[in-house]
Write a protein that binds this DNA or RNA. Sequence first.
DNA 1: AATGAATGAGAGTTCATTCAT
DNA 2: TATGAATGAACTCTCATTCAT
Lengths: 234, 234, 234, 234
Amino acid sequence: MPRHEHVPPASQNATALDKQASSKGPGTIPSPATARGELTRRRILDAAEVVFGELGYYEASISEITRRAGVAQGTFYIYFHSKREIFVELVEDVGERLRAATRVAMADAPDRLEAERRGFAAFFDFAANHRRIYSIVQEAGRVAPEAAQAYYRAISHSYVHGLQIAMEGGTIRTLSPEATAYALMGIGHFVALRWLIWPQENEETQEEEVHLPDDIFNAVMDFITHGLALPAKE
Amino acid sequence: MPRHEHVPPASQNATALDKQASSKGPGTIPSPATARGELTRRRILDAAEVVFGELGYYEASISEITRRAGVAQGTFYIYFHSKREIFVELVEDVGERLRAATRVAMADAPDRLEAERRGFAAFFDFAANHRRIYSIVQEAGRVAPEAAQAYYRAISHSYVHGLQIAMEGGTIRTLSPEATAYALMGIGHFVALRWLIWPQENEETQEEEVHLPDDIFNAVMDFITHGLALPAKE
Amino acid sequence: MPRHEHVPPASQNATALDKQASSKGPGTIPSPATARGELTRRRILDAAEVVFGELGYYEASISEITRRAGVAQGTFYIYFHSKREIFVELVEDVGERLRAATRVAMADAPDRLEAERRGFAAFFDFAANHRRIYSIVQEAGRVAPEAAQAYYRAISHSYVHGLQIAMEGGTIRTLSPEATAYALMGIGHFVALRWLIWPQENEETQEEEVHLPDDIFNAVMDFITHGLALPAKE
Amino acid sequence: MPRHEHVPPASQNATALDKQASSKGPGTIPSPATARGELTRRRILDAAEVVFGELGYYEASISEITRRAGVAQGTFYIYFHSKREIFVELVEDVGERLRAATRVAMADAPDRLEAERRGFAAFFDFAANHRRIYSIVQEAGRVAPEAAQAYYRAISHSYVHGLQIAMEGGTIRTLSPEATAYALMGIGHFVALRWLIWPQENEETQEEEVHLPDDIFNAVMDFITHGLALPAKE
DNA sequence: AATGAATGAGAGTTCATTCAT
DNA sequence: TATGAATGAACTCTCATTCAT
């Protein structure tokens, strides 16, 4: 539970644009000088990913993170200003990884609809295999709205870009690329929740493989395809 | 401060089926025996809605809730077993109110696509006017997964029902009503986030009216309409 | 857990002598005027006996007592000033019942040693059958020392009386009747603990009959008999 | 304020067997890594002994303990999982110290009856000088029955052992060593209560020296001696 | 006589963060 | 760089007692 967070002088609002790597707080913490430091930082980050994923932001504690990282509690503050800071860094991380995964998958699709298909497949894959980390983003909506919005905005941007090109190329139709982008994100998110995330929360099959059933995937892609399709060429 | 207008007479008595589901703790707390008790319970519930909406589950505190309700802290526990319990009750409440609102709106639509249009309009209205409460549900994913899942499942159910009828009536096409149901919920949720929830979080125009821009609404409905439409009557 | 007990003006020390029936607090609560009141008071007392016995003084709560008595919480304070007061009354009660039971059993024993034997048998019977109430007295040592001491002192008194007569009659030997009295009480208490109270706490055979094994009883009585016996008439 | 003089170097490391028994909670708290930590833990333990002794388990509060130890409230939980845990540790401590004290006293007694005499003397000494801590054990009956039972069982064990040897050696007589062991414990406890504990509770002579009057001690030992004595060999 | 709502102080416990070593 | 002890505010929840009805 969230006792005081000591909110020191802290900035808190960093316009989300002016952040390279995630500058925060009064003094930016410099990257570790030594390889050992680098390693320790990495260890903490990895542990945090697991702990946040399992427990959620609020139920997670620094002491649990450091325990799992195998370092002392004080060590945490050598590398991060606060609990919130490391969380934001993680959210940004997930976003980047997810975007990278879909970008690669969509790379050389013959057309936009096929790209969409591959992109969604890659997304569902990612969600299935990074179930816990994936759910971090949801929480960010409350914990670090700027980070969450930035995350979605980044995805939306590439979407809008792709859709616009396709639209100009005359292969699809949209009344508003941005609206469509958010609609598509919503579809992906909710379908993932329903068929990838919840099943594992409920059953004890926790660590099992999960995969989106083909018929669901096809149904979803069918819906999307028609939603984007040109108006029956007549 | 135009919070919820209690769309239906509100819950409290639900469908007798749900009641079972939400009973918690060692002994169920009986409904207040006097009018005074009824009033106090209502006051606390209302205050909790506001506080949870503003601060989120974890940052909200019982003391803040009772302070805002104008009762002593101990009074809270006369009516609720725990913080989590009142939260779950609120989530169920929101779900019921939302479903009621859309049900009414869709009531006498001429066809499924028009029903969809009116349903979405009602939903966006609800989200715009109950912004804070609406966002409670998101958090429930972490705090009370069963409640969150029940919420979505309930909506999905009515969706599936409606879609199936329409499908059999030959007015729409789906490969999987359930997949479509979640897709539609996702669309609604994300569009609401982007154009109704975030704008107010960011600006200080907090208590202003918000309305989904018509072009966005139309773009969304166009996408959905085509997604569901029959394959060009040929 | 023992939040404030509001210790109002209360006396607290009532010299243990000047108490007929248990006068306490600022105004003594008069005996119930009506038969209905009498009944209610009795109900509360009985419930309290069960609850204190099961939970102990501190873990017991007024609300649990009134719940089990089937009356409202406020009703409690019509008949008792405080939690402590009803506890003391109960302790006195147990003491009286126990003394009555042994007195009856010892009534027409042919000699002191036989009287002792019958008295102990009656005591073990009482402890076995009133296991829970019996354990109330132990706690009284902390909660209401005067009551506990009065309890033991009362038993000791009758003991001393009996021993003295026997001593003068030349059937037993003691260097100090009072020391012997406490020794005998200690024996009874500890043997009861070991063979009557603990066994039921540990096993799930909770509500079963328990009886002190004959060999234990005989061993104890043998020890006592020799402890009191005359020095082999030489 | 002549509290315990730590008869033996105290516990803390016990017999490695007991350790297992008293490990609680999810993760065992490791022993302090630094001397400073060691000291703080000790301080808290000592304060707890005093506070529990004076107020009893339930009336004692963590905040009172830490206040008296001169540390922050949170510090308590660095070294102990809970109020109950430290209490149990204390009970085990007292038991060990008491057993050590009597063991030493009985060490080279010429025969069993003399050993008994010396053991009892040591016990009464201990009870007189550690009055408050001694009374902790009584409460344990309700708060931590396993700990209390273990305490008595440990004493009983050494008793039974000693009695058996003496019995085989033909210097005493018992029908049941265990029954006798509990009888002896009962005697000691009740006599201590009556002549060592209560007197100080009642009068304001609280911190004065107390000693069991010789005549009482002799009367008790006479009773025990005869209780155990061989049947006048004729 | 009886109810049951209301109080509010206080309890045990957690945890982000700081800091001396 | 790393440690781990220390802090103290804040939290959820309990309960003896009072009081208007």
